[in-house]
């Protein structure tokens, strides 16, 4: 398994990276490389020109300003897990990152790569949806910020325009009365999810004031289970309601069939993972 030939450029700045994307047809960004390089080794993907954005200053790191946490796109999964800021103000990201791949891969894999790749099997897209994250994007025309909700358009297809780079992710810090949950069913360590679900709830006593449910790997892209959210919003959650929520989630799923399971299994597993995440999120919110 050997990739085809390509040229390699280590970008010195975001502007440099964008310029190289513009100047070289079909150029691709190299972030952690643990999705791209295996694809290139299997020759499922060919890129004549790779722009390595690992060395760019300012693309890494986690900071908090008021209620907003900013995460550099090139922050690795391991750095997410080790972050005191995230552990305190956004533990959902920590929990999700722990379930990504394995320790070595987490040392290279980045949150930006995971989000921008557009792979429905990646974990962070659903987490971004549940967190209502904002994505900071740089392109030839400057910076823009767009919500994660609406960013994921299909398999390997996002709202990123040509020559654009995802540079940072902004997520709200956890406030009192909010809770989160993440559950992922996988065949083994290192595998993509059979199904996964990220949930964030805002509670008002026993009543769910607001909820966002993101689903992993059960549609061409990460999706919000909006019909299920509508069922819960403004309600107390009990078994009867959860059953209805599960049905709504199954209906929302459109998974690809593979060795992990057929449509029926994956859709039901999405419902089970969501149920578990909802229960976990409500429990968390009480603490």
């Amino acid at each position: 398994m050997i990739p085809s030939c390509f040229e390699y450029h280590k970008a010195t700045s975001i502007a440099d990276a964008i310029a190289k994307l513009q100047d070289n047809e079909d150029a691709k960004l190299l972030a952690g490389g643990h999705s791209l390089l295996p694809m290139m080794k299997l020759r499922f993907s060919e890129a004549p020109y790779l722009v390595d954005i690992n060395g760019i200053e300012g693309l890494k790191g986690i900071s908090i300003d008021g209620d907003t946490i900013t995460i550099g796109a090139m922050t690795t999964e391991s750095e997410l897990i080790r972050s005191d800021i995230l552990q305190q103000y956004c533990p959902l990201l920590v929990e999700a990152a722990k379930l990504v791949a394995d320790p070595q891969v987490r040392n290279k894999g980045t949150i930006g790569g995971d989000v921008a790749h557009g792979d429905p099997g990646n974990d962070h897209p659903a987490v971004m949806l549940a967190l209502d994250a904002q994505l900071v994007i740089h392109g030839p025309d400057g910076e823009r910020m767009i919500p994660a909700n609406g960013f994921f358009l299909g398999t390997y297809w996002t709202a990123l325009e040509e020559y654009e780079i995802l540079v940072a992710i902004k997520v709200p810090a956890l406030t009192s009365g909010t809770g989160h949950g993440y559950h992922k069913l996988k065949r083994k360590t290192g595998d993509y999810a059979v199904a996964g679900s990220a949930v964030v709830v805002e509670m008002n006593g026993d009543v769910v004031r607001d909820i966002r449910i993101g689903l992993t790997n059960v549609a061409p892209m990460a999706i919000r289970a909006e019909a299920a959210e509508d069922l819960i919003r403004g309600k107390r959650v009990d078994d009867v309601l959860l059953k209805a929520v599960e049905k709504a989630i199954v209906a929302a799923c459109d998974p690809a069939v593979d060795l992990r399971g057929d449509e029926e299994y994956k859709s039901h597993m999405a419902a089970i993972m969501a149920r578990r995440s909802i229960i976990q999120a409500i429990e968390n919110a009480k603490e």
Partner: peptide, 29 residues
């Protein structure tokens, strides 16, 4: 495995464990 699953190629780079089958040598400069 050559797909970054098995870890038999693991080395330590700048204080982190890395699977060297999924890293370009030019990246290690």
């Amino acid at each position: 495995c050559e797909t970054s699953h098995c870890g038999v190629c693991t080395v330590d780079i700048d204080g982190e464990s890395v699977k060297s089958c999924t890293l370009l040598t030019v990246q290690t400069a």
